[in-house]
Design a protein around this nucleic acid. Structure first.
Lengths: 137, 137
DNA sequence: ATAGCTGCAAAACCTTTGCAATCAA
DNA sequence: TTGATTGCAAAGGTTTTGCAGCTAT
């Protein structure tokens, strides 16, 4: 239950935080910016200030509740998604901007190994493939 | 020779562009921001306007002359490096900010395969490992 | 000659912050 | 009650853009 997620992160259960969580849950599979979260809340009963959206998303990120990405497409702005149970990576169509998610255990394993071989432990990682539709053969 | 690189990219050979190239070449192994390139040129004979540095770096990036990264560390600014002959990935120490480069053919191959299996061709990719020094065992 | 390039200052953009009022615990 | 949270507006930092003058070809 989401209220519990907030409490265990040391965050008080407030309406704005629940609203942001709600938007993220409804955005399943999408990658939304702070601005986008803000806009989606404007159309609902209880709006939330943009500054608060930014603050809440940052707190969620620190708490491991959401993942943040800086895709090279969206030059400037960060996008967020609820942290998935199973980690996944991203593939972005450079022509359409469409984002596909994928999971590859072998790559995950290799990353662990590379870090270990260099005397590190892997804390996090980000893999993005920029791709283009292959002409039909 | 670098002048030729510019010409084949459809860019006129101008002093500002050569200066930026020079800074990037001298920064071998570093990952420098536009601001940083600008600063390094201030101390030289021929300074270059900050706007021009941004424009030139963007053009170089489009031309494939430089790689651009948005590491999650440098929250805001992008960093650049001359495109290496052999592609490499990055490992960032989350405590110190230190960046290490590495190459792993197996991962490269898997990426190609993932893209192909989804009907895409791989245009580019970005892999960053966020790591922490392992306590000595 | 002329299309492209540059510098400057201003604008655009995303994100953070100060502060007074409000709220959860 | 009281420290945390919020909204607003202002500020901050990076990057882009308009424009008049300059330059490479």
């Amino acid at each position: 239950m989401s209220k519990q997620d907030l409490k265990s992160a040391g965050l008080k259960v407030t309406l704005p935080r629940l609203r942001v969580l709600e938007v993220l849950r409804d955005a399943e599979g999408e990658h939304v910016s702070a601005e986008e979260v803000y806009k989606r809340l404007l159309n609902s009963d209880e709006a939330v200030g943009l500054a608060t959206v930014y603050r809440v998303l940052t707190q969620f990120h620190s708490a491991g509740i959401v993942d943040r990405h800086h895709f090279d497409d969206n030059h400037a702005h960060a996008v967020y998604e609820l942290s998935p149970d199973e980690h996944h990576d991203h593939m972005i169509d450079v022509d359409t901007g469409e984002i596909t998610e994928f999971v590859n255990g072998q790559i995950e394993q290799l990353q662990e190994q590379i870090a270990r071989d260099s005397g590190y432990e892997l804390v996090d990682h980000e893999l993005v493939l920029y791709v283009r539709k292959r002409p039909d053969s």
